[in-house]
Design a protein around this nucleic acid. Structure first.
Lengths: 232, 232
DNA sequence: CTGGTTTATTGCGCCAGCGCAAAGATGCCC
DNA sequence: GGGCATCTTTGCGCTGGCGCAATAAACCAG
């Protein structure tokens, strides 16, 4: 039965880990499912923070856009992860957008439902604390990289991080499993697509990476790590 | 009685807001007090995340330092705010350091005590969620600024933010109440002290700011806001 | 297969901001 | 009040990486 599978899946997410089975069943009953196609907007920047999602399948991108249209990618999220922190933390509106990169399958709850859940079950609130703590840590590190490192190192770090969280071993090396353009890498590394393109070309020359249209494969991780760590 | 005053103070912090008085009393009894002089290290990067503090008086700086000694300032914190998130979120070690900028007076708890408190009182866990959510929001915005804005705008944003959270109205304008060097501003804006110095000199010329040794006063906030918002 | 769209590459010139270095200002401690 | 440490200013030259622009390659739809 599908619901049963759902319950097991929920029990493995960062949000509901450790919850007793009967609670998971309640949670599952309160949820709704939703599918999105690649490119769809799941959460819109500025909209009321009324929904929280967990990713069942597919890959999403959290971004933040300025008034003048400049965009940065805050992070990518995959199966088991949470989209819509603002709704957890009691924010009024979403500070950024979440876009489907692949075709995606999500499970969602209303903000009020989740907040009530947290109020009734401290364990879930603590899961949220851990999850936000982990995100805060990640983003601190990126802030430091952005402030102190030169572009090449930043791009290297960005790719290594993506390979870590969404890499698949292949004969050619570690392939990032979702489509990732030069522009995307630029928006994660705080640079321009031109500089990313030039950098990747140079690396390709040296056999460190292999890339195609919206594809990146890390052929020689140790060399890329060396670049990421070498001082300016 | 001093304890009574403490309890009231705790009830107004972001961490314990909304807790019933008798719980606050328990919390207060479990706490220890500690004083630090300007320049002292309160939490050391890499140390076991075993303590959480609330600032009673004074001002602190949260930083993160790289292996090669480069430093960024994550944020400043003042009265009522929490130092040592890692201990709340169940992290192993502190990802950054916290340093006293002024002479400071703090109240602290062991990580285990606070975690037990969260587990027993969902309201407190929810306060932590809100607090981490707010920090995450702040840092997202800074990440975007750092990625997309030119230095002058970034410095303007940095100063405006500091004026917002630690500004005092005076005849000369809004004064940032704690000592703040050019180097500090550089480490918050992702630039060098030289560029900060040059920029502030130019602004001083135009009467937008007035500054001295480790002092910054925003004389004409609207003009500074204009700089912060003007497109590149 | 064709035409159109999106994505990637690369040459070229320029300039914002860095890094160095040296001098100057300010505050503190004895 | 004098000496010292810390902090700030400013000139100068250089360069990393941006921005533009034009071309090329890959993909898609019909």
């Amino acid at each position: 039965m599908e619901d049963q599978a759902d319950v097991e899946m929920l029990g493995r997410t960062e949000l509901f880990r450790g919850a007793p089975v009967d609670l998971l069943r309640d949670i599952q009953r309160a949820a709704f499912r939703k599918r999105f196609s690649a490119g769809d907007t799941v959460l819109q920047q500025g909209d009321a923070a009324a929904t929280v999602y967990i990713v069942v399948a597919g890959r999403l991108r959290a971004t933040q856009t300025t008034l003048d249209g400049q965009q940065v990618i805050i992070r990518y999220l995959g199966p088991g992860e949470v989209a819509g922190y603002a709704a957890l933390a009691g924010g009024e509106t979403f500070p950024g957008a979440v876009i489907a990169v692949d075709d995606c399958h999500l499970i969602g709850w209303s903000a009020t439902a989740i907040q009530e859940l947290m109020a009734r079950h401290a364990g879930i609130a603590i899961n949220v604390v851990k999850l936000l703590g982990a995100r805060y840590l990640d983003i601190q590190v990126r802030l430091r990289e952005l402030s102190t490192e030169k572009v090449e190192r930043r791009i290297a770090h960005t790719i290594l991080r993506l390979a870590q969280q969404a890499g698949r071993r292949t004969v050619r090396g570690i392939e990032i499993v979702f489509p990732l353009s030069r522009q995307d890498l630029a928006e994660m590394s705080g640079t321009t697509l031109h500089t990313v393109s030039r950098t990747l070309s140079a690396w390709e020359e040296r056999g460190i990476v292999a890339c195609g249209r919206r594809r990146v494969v890390v052929a020689k991780p140790p060399l890329l790590e060396a670049i990421a760590e070498e001082p300016d």
